[in-house]
Amino acid sequence: MSLQEQVVVITGSTGGLGPAVVQACLRAGAVVVAGHRGHVAPDEWRSRFEGADGQLALVSADLTDETSVPALADHAIQQYGRLDGWLNLVGGYAGGTPVADLELAEFEAMLTLNLRTAFLGSRAAFRAMQPRRRGSIVNVSSLGALRGTAGHAGYAAAKAAVIRLTETLAAEGAPYGIRANVVLPGMIDTPANRAAMPGADRATWVAPEDIAAVLVFLLSDAARAVSGTSLPIGG
């Protein structure tokens, strides 16, 4: 799939899924504005990627902070004159506590990390894309959003809400040529997940590169007729 001449913002670019997605977008020909939180050495980080010369910008942004998020869209518009795609990869998991024992702060932490970031990122993308009447927004939910299970109240609620948020974006974006879709990965095969579950059967885990390929498709013109879709990935 080609993203030639497209400008794509990727949030959570330094997380478990982020590097594979950055590389896939670069290989597809996109200019990538990579959002990150915390200290990153830009030159060292860029050296990890093929095709990064002149095609990859690293921008600091806290996706939980309403005032910080627009910097990503602003950088894309100011430096490259356009914004074609936006991938919301920021998220995280905490669970294992039943509702009766769950602290409000723990519940809200999952909403902040998974839902607030998707909302603020999507809103910034929508506002930047609206004048050009073109764009693609892709959020990341989880297979765990499809059914509540014991000990996962905050995570499941947040990820389920991301699906409804994406469907709303698709409906509101249709008159402006803005598409919105959401992917629902199963367990992602990252070093962090391997370390947390050393004895797990990884037969159904999904590789970051496989998720990245789907994200590139949803950004591309090959998916121009696809919007409002929730796409499961992995088992």
Rank of each mutant, 00 (worst) to 15 (best):
E5W: 04
A160D: 13
H152D: 15
F126Q: 04
H36D: 02
Q4D: 12
P70T: 12
A170C: 03
T166R: 10
G173R: 13
E50S: 14
A203L: 11
P131R: 09
A200Q: 06
V183M: 08
W205I: 07
G51V: 08
D84P: 04
S122I: 01
L17E: 09
A57I: 00
R224C: 01
D84A: 10
R133T: 05
Y93V: 10
G235F: 08
V90D: 13
A207D: 14
A71E: 12
L104M: 13
V32R: 09
V33Y: 03
L26Y: 10
L26R: 01
E106N: 12
S68D: 14
K159W: 12
S142N: 02
L184V: 01
G177N: 06
V40C: 08
L104D: 11
R224D: 12
A30R: 09
V99N: 03
L89R: 05
F126Y: 13
S142V: 06
W205Q: 00
L17T: 05
R134H: 14
W45F: 15
T14R: 11
V32G: 07
G144W: 11
G95P: 05
G154M: 07
A158Q: 05
L143P: 01
A150N: 05
S60C: 07
Y80L: 04
G38S: 06
L143D: 04
A61E: 01
V226R: 13
G92P: 10
A156K: 01
A105K: 15
E209Q: 14
A24C: 04
Q79G: 07
D221F: 04
A41V: 13
A195P: 00
A94L: 11
N181P: 00
E108Y: 04
L219D: 10
A161P: 06
G95N: 09
W205D: 03
V9H: 04
Y176K: 06
V7L: 09
E103D: 14
A212F: 14
S230Q: 12
T14I: 13
A171E: 15
R194C: 02
L120G: 00
L146H: 02
G235I: 03
S142D: 07
G91I: 11
V206H: 02
A52W: 08
Q78S: 14
A213P: 05
F126N: 07
N193R: 06
S227D: 10
G144V: 10
A118T: 02
L26K: 00
A20Q: 06
H75K: 10
E108N: 12
N114H: 08
A156Q: 02
A223S: 14
G12F: 05
Y155C: 03
G35H: 06
A160L: 11
A28I: 02
M129F: 04
P198E: 08
H39D: 12
D221M: 02
R82M: 00
A124I: 01
M1D: 09
A57D: 15
I188W: 03
P70F: 11
T166Y: 10
L219V: 05
V33C: 03
G234W: 06
P185Y: 06
L56K: 12
A212W: 13
L3Y: 10
D53H: 13
G173H: 14
A222R: 15
P98V: 13
R132K: 13
L63C: 14
A125E: 05
P185V: 02
G186V: 00
S68A: 15
L120S: 02
A30V: 04
E44I: 00
I77T: 08
L3C: 05
A156M: 03
F119V: 11
S220K: 11
E172L: 09
T11W: 10
